[in-house]
């Protein structure tokens, strides 16, 4: 089967997660397709992080099913989900500060090559892994600082590295938790360009508070409120929805979100 844009890559069916008596997510379903950016919106505490954590395998759902390309992956651990093509980035930057930018990317790419013969060699001598690190550094715009120690990068560059590391693992599905958080205007627009380019080959779930970016990028928007799916549809529908306006966007009424 050849993979085309529009193929369903990841599907969540009726995901529910309780923390004690609190339902952080109840009965949330979602479909992520190749070639689509699916934005997940909701006020703080709406359950967006819980939802991402269930998709990435960091948190087992209380009930519901997760399918990757039709296969049930609900019971797979987080590292296995990464190996089969679900990559996630983190809201708080999660890089390895003492390694160089390239070493960070190499460490991520090496995760696809964990055979003993490849592990017991200096990382920069593994040609396939090094080649992949160059590709993702070029994609994320980090070529100029490949040998810089990651901890000394600017905040925006660290966010770019965060994305580069996810890409180095060759995921089909990208779960991106606030990739634009704390970025300046210029860095932000560069990241938006990158995400638009990644759309073609990936299915992307985007959690983001920057509404300009969301409406510029998203093909589909799902709104969560109190752990429940409020509405899901194309950006125009969400923008026009009275329910969304009152529940989420509605705090200062009359604002134009276009």
């Amino acid at each position: 089967m050849t993979e085309r844009p529009g193929d369903v890559l990841l599907e969540a069916r009726g995901l529910t997660r309780h923390f004690g008596g609190l339902a952080a997510n109840s009965n949330v379903s979602m479909t992520l397709r190749r070639g689509e950016i699916h934005a997940l919106l909701g006020p703080n505490g709406a359950g967006k992080s819980t939802f991402i954590n269930m998709l990435s395998g960091d948190l087992p759902p209380s009930s519901g099913t997760i399918l990757l390309k039709g296969d049930d992956v609900t019971a797979l651990s987080a590292h296995r989900r990464s190996r089969i093509g679900i990559g996630r980035s983190f809201q708080r930057t999660n890089i390895f500060p003492t390694f160089s930018v390239q070493e960070n990317c190499v460490l991520a790419a090496q995760s696809r090559q964990q055979q003993p013969g490849r592990i017991f060699r200096p990382p920069l001598q593994n040609e396939a892994v090094v080649a992949r690190s160059h590709e993702v550094m070029a994609l994320a715009g980090l070529n100029h600082c490949a040998s810089q120690i990651a901890g000394t990068l600017s905040h925006g560059e660290q966010r770019q590295l965060e994305i580069a590391m996810v890409l180095a693992t060759n995921p089909a599905v990208l779960l991106l938790d606030e990739p634009l958080a704390g970025m300046g205007a210029e860095e932000s627009s560069r990241m938006v360009d990158l995400l638009a380019r990644l759309r073609r080959d990936h299915a992307i779930l985007l959690v983001e508070h920057d509404m300009d970016a969301v409406f510029a990028l998203a093909d589909v928007i799902t709104v969560l409120v109190n752990g429940e799916l409020l509405e899901s549809g194309p950006p125009e529908q969400i923008k026009a929805s009275p329910a969304v306006r009152s529940a989420y966007l509605g705090e200062d009424e009359g604002t134009d979100y276009a």
Partner: peptide
């Protein structure tokens, strides 16, 4: 070696190592 870097990665941020596909 890469093995050594993986160990340092685990010390530095085990959660990220798991997210990148390392058991």
């Amino acid at each position: 070696t890469s093995f050594g870097h993986i160990l340092i990665g685990i010390r530095s941020n085990e959660h990220r190592m798991v997210a990148m596909g390392y058991n």
